[in-house]
């Protein structure tokens, strides 16, 4: 007797987002990447289409006083992290599908780069590697608007993904993305209603919904990731059952969250009972990423090459039908 497999019937798939433009598409990228488009809960291939695999965008941070822990910097190289172009090349060799350029140097406390200087960094990264590019501001709202505007204009036609749009300030970024052919990251702090509202507000400015990617603001494993996990599961169920304001791909700043925690960077000497830091660090980041994949994340922004290697291996396994 055969078991009657229980397949869910869904109203719609998640929208797909295309990151990066090749020469034929008006840019200079070696390839473009499509993410999202899922027709099922994560990796339940037997009940629908999951046409695109999740991708890893490795971080390049422009912060002149980079405050990353030595253990993480050493895995990349001190000379590498001092030069965004070199760093981008390193990331490509480490298996990155895309680059996540975090323009922390725009913050007056982290270098105070002008909007023009920031735009130049983005162009340098584009020149260094042919990977699709994601760019995020410094987090300092007073400078980010102009910085992202300058980046959007300087990279017109490349099909970037720019962030972060938040409910208090999104209009300038939406305008910059709209006018220059970029996608936008809509960030909402662990709240499904704010997430929907922000997507609607962005849509009202005539931004096509398929150019929005949701950042639900995940946290690290061990530090409340279960809240983000449940928000993502609820959001995906909402999207599949017909809520158009939730049917966008997800992005998560995994590396940033994981490496803030002492479980990742605490030395073996100081935290011997937690095991070897050289294993624990990449594992903490990879575990956070693996949890995000089960929650339905499409774009993982990551840092450590070992964590990236293992998560890419898992993504291939998860996409095996």
């Amino acid at each position: 007797m055969a078991v009657q497999i229980l397949k869910e019937k869904y109203a719609q798939p998640v929208r797909a987002f295309k990151l990066g433009n090749t020469a034929e598409e008006g840019g200079t990228r070696g390839y473009s990447l499509t993410v999202g488009g899922e027709g099922t809960l994560p990796f339940q291939h037997y009940e629908g289409e999951n046409p695109n695999k999740p991708i890893v965008a490795m971080e390049v941070n422009s912060n002149k006083q980079l405050d990353w822990k030595d253990t993480l910097v050493d895995a990349i190289g001190k000379d590498v992290v001092a030069d965004p172009a070199k760093w981008a090349q390193f990331n490509k060799e480490a298996g990155a599908d895309a680059i996540y350029l975090k323009l922390d140097s725009a913050d007056p406390d982290k270098g105070g780069d002008s909007p023009e200087a920031c735009a130049q960094i983005a162009k340098d990264v584009l020149a260094a590697v042919d990977l699709p590019l994601i760019v995020a501001g410094s987090g300092n709202a007073t400078v980010d608007e102009e910085v992202l505007m300058a980046v959007a204009e300087a990279t017109k036609g490349e099909g970037l993904l720019l962030g972060f749009a938040e409910t208090e300030h999104y209009k300038a970024l939406v305008a910059a993305c709209l006018g220059n052919g970029h996608g936008i990251i809509a960030r909402s702090p662990l709240d499904i209603n704010i997430c929907k509202q922000l997507n609607i507000l962005i849509g009202e400015m005539n931004m096509p919904m398929e150019r929005i990617v949701i950042d639900p603001l995940v946290s690290s494993v061990g530090y409340g990731i279960e809240y983000a996990y449940s928000i993502m599961e609820r959001g995906r169920i909402g999207a599949l059952t017909g809520d158009k304001t939730l049917a966008m791909p997800l992005i998560a700043t995994v590396g940033f969250e994981a490496w803030r925690q002492k479980e990742a960077w605490g030395t073996t000497e100081e935290y011997a009972e937690w095991g070897e830091q050289s294993q624990r660090g990449p594992a903490w980041e990879a575990t956070t990423a693996a949890a995000c994949l089960q929650g339905g994340v499409d774009i993982l922004c990551m840092r450590h090459p070992d964590a990236v290697k293992t998560i890419k291996h898992q993504i291939d396994a998860l996409m095996t039908k």
Partner: peptide
């Protein structure tokens, strides 16, 4: 380790592993 992470999320009551290494088990 991260294969086990996926199995913890999705409904396995028991996961049997081979490598008993502290640095990998703490995150799980």
């Amino acid at each position: 380790a991260i294969q086990a992470v996926a199995y913890v999320a999705k409904y396995c009551s028991i996961v049997v592993m081979k490598n008993a290494i502290k640095g990998y088990v703490l995150p799980i």
